[in-house]
């Protein structure tokens, strides 16, 4: 669940990245966030993960009010989120399995819990055969699936993916999107940031478009298709 109410974000250097954004994402939704480079997409992601604080407006994430959240509460808010990046961000000297265990131990899971959960998510992303490999031994698409498994492993309410297919070829990108769609069907809310029009148009999902720090459209059924019909 996400609520942006008139959110402003100015960075320390004065850059106004967001200029009054209103956005509501309910539990169970699958939402694409599209827009040109520098339009403020990653800023929205950083506000949701509390990496940055809003300069103005009201912000709620999964029941946490981020306007006046205590620093000690931020980790617990983050446990309700799974985050995926364009550059995967896996630990290269750990195996796939160890990467997932690492993410679980980070929030205090016991070895028994990791033994139960890790094989399940590895199977979900189709990498049960690669559990003992290191990230460098995998293709980009496989590495991103590991990152998705890691985002899922702590069973978050919502997954946020910032350009998850930016480093992948069209075929792998489609596979990743279909995997994310499947995860959404299993009950997790999905917010996917991308600027790949073909990809967005292949799915009939809600598309929020942002430009120059403002939401310019929010419709279901393919944003770029609409552009063509105008």
């Amino acid at each position: 669940m996400i609520r942006f109410k008139e959110i402003q974000k100015a960075y320390d250097n004065g850059t106004k990245a967001l200029k009054g954004v209103n956005l509501r994402i309910d539990d169970g939704e699958f939402v694409f966030l599209v827009g040109p480079s520098g339009s403020g997409k990653s800023t929205i992601v950083k506000l949701i993960t509390a990496e940055e604080a809003p300069s103005g407006g009201r912000l709620m994430v999964n029941g946490y009010n981020l306007n006046n959240i205590r620093p000690g509460q931020v980790p617990f808010m983050r446990r309700t989120l799974g985050v995926i990046f364009q550059d995967f961000r896996l630990i290269e000297k750990k195996t796939i399995q160890e990467n997932l265990i690492f993410a679980m131990r980070a929030i205090g899971a016991s070895p028994r819990e990791t033994r139960k959960r890790v094989p399940y998510v590895l199977e979900l992303v189709g990498l049960e055969q690669k559990a003992g490999c290191r990230p460098t031994e995998l293709s980009g698409g496989e590495q991103q699936r590991v990152a998705i498994a890691r985002a899922l492993v702590n069973n978050p309410q919502m997954i946020i993916a910032d350009e998850p297919t930016g480093n992948l070829d069209p075929m792998r990108s489609l596979e990743i999107m279909m995997l994310l769609e499947r995860i959404n069907e299993l009950g997790t809310t999905l917010l996917v940031v991308t600027h790949e029009r073909e990809l967005v148009d292949r799915f009939s999902k809600r598309v929020v478009a942002i430009e120059n720090g403002r939401i310019i459209s929010d419709e279901t059924g393919g944003y770029y298709n609409d552009e063509v019909t105008i």
Binding site: P75, R78, L81, V83, I91, F102, I107
Partner: peptide
């Protein structure tokens, strides 16, 4: 710092 960033992203507390 990478590992720390990942831990923080997953919701690890500062103490942890």
């Amino acid at each position: 710092r990478e590992e720390i960033a990942i831990m923080k992203m997953c919701g690890a507390t500062n103490g942890f």
